[in-house]
C-alpha cells in the first residue's frame, strides 16, 4: 500500500494511460478487421478501454491484460451483431475511409477482404484472431469462450469458404513477399 493514498489514482491513471498509448492502435486495427467499419471499430475500442478501466485494479497481472482486453473487445464485436439494429445493412454513399496498402492493391487483398467481410461475425472474429493476431487455436478458444474444436471447425469452414470463392489466379504461388507486420512493436 502506498503511504499517500491520494497518489493511488494518479499512479493508476498513469499505468492505464501508458497501456492505452501502447495498445490502442493495435486494438483499433483488430476491431476494424472484425467489424469492417472504422466508426464502429472506434466505438468498440472506446467501450473496451472503458471496461478495462473499470476493471484495471483487478487485473493485477499485467501479462494477462492483453488477453483480457482482447476478450472484452471480441465480446463487444460479437455482441454488436446480436443487436437487431446492427444487423441492418446500411447504404453508404461514399467509399470506405480506410485505404488498402498499395503493396496488395492488385486485387488479391481486396478480394480476400471482401470474402472475409461476408463471413459470419463469429467466424470472422476467429479468422482475424488466427490470421491477423496470430493466436493459437487454444488462445482463440480462451478469448472467445469456446472450445478448441469449435475454433478448428470455424477456421476450417472459413478457409473452405474462402477457397471456394477465391479466383483461380489467387491459388497459384504468387510473388508477394510477406512484409514485416505493421504494429509489431505494439504487440
Amino acid at each position: 500500500m502506498l503511504d499517500d493514498p491520494s497518489s493511488v489514482p494518479r499512479q493508476r491513471d498513469d499505468d492505464f494511460s501508458a497501456y492505452v498509448e501502447a495498445r490502442r492502435a493495435a486494438l483499433l486495427r483488430t476491431a476494424y478487421l472484425m467489424t469492417g467499419d472504422l466508426a464502429t471499430a472506434e466505438d468498440v475500442v472506446q467501450t473496451t478501454l472503458a471496461k478495462l478501466y473499470l476493471a484495471w485494479d483487478k487485473v493485477s497481472a499485467r501479462d494477462a491484460v492483453h488477453s483480457y482486453t482482447r476478450r472484452i473487445l471480441t465480446n463487444e464485436v460479437t455482441s454488436l451483431w446480436r443487436r437487431a439494429w446492427r444487423r441492418r445493412e446500411l447504404p453508404v454513399d461514399r467509399l470506405p475511409d480506410v485505404a488498402t496498402d498499395p503493396a496488395y492493391d492488385d486485387g488479391t487483398a481486396a478480394a480476400l477482404w471482401a470474402f472475409v467481410g461476408e463471413l459470419a461475425p463469429r467466424a470472422r472474429a476467429v479468422v482475424v484472431l488466427r490470421y491477423y493476431e496470430q493466436l493459437t487455436e487454444a488462445e482463440i478458444a480462451e478469448v472467445m469462450g469456446i472450445s478448441v474444436g469449435t475454433v478448428k471447425s470455424q477456421c476450417s469452414r472459413a478457409l473452405a469458404s474462402l477457397r471456394a470463392r477465391v479466383p483461380a489466379s489467387l491459388e497459384r504461388p504468387d510473388t508477394h513477399e510477406r512484409p514485416a507486420r505493421s504494429g509489431d512493436g505494439e504487440q
Partner: peptide, 12 residues
C-alpha cells in the same frame, strides 16, 4: 489471408 488482413489493417 494474413497478408491481406495486415495490409488492410495498416491503412487504419
Amino acid at each position: 489471408l494474413t497478408a491481406a488482413l495486415e495490409g488492410r489493417a495498416s491503412g487504419v
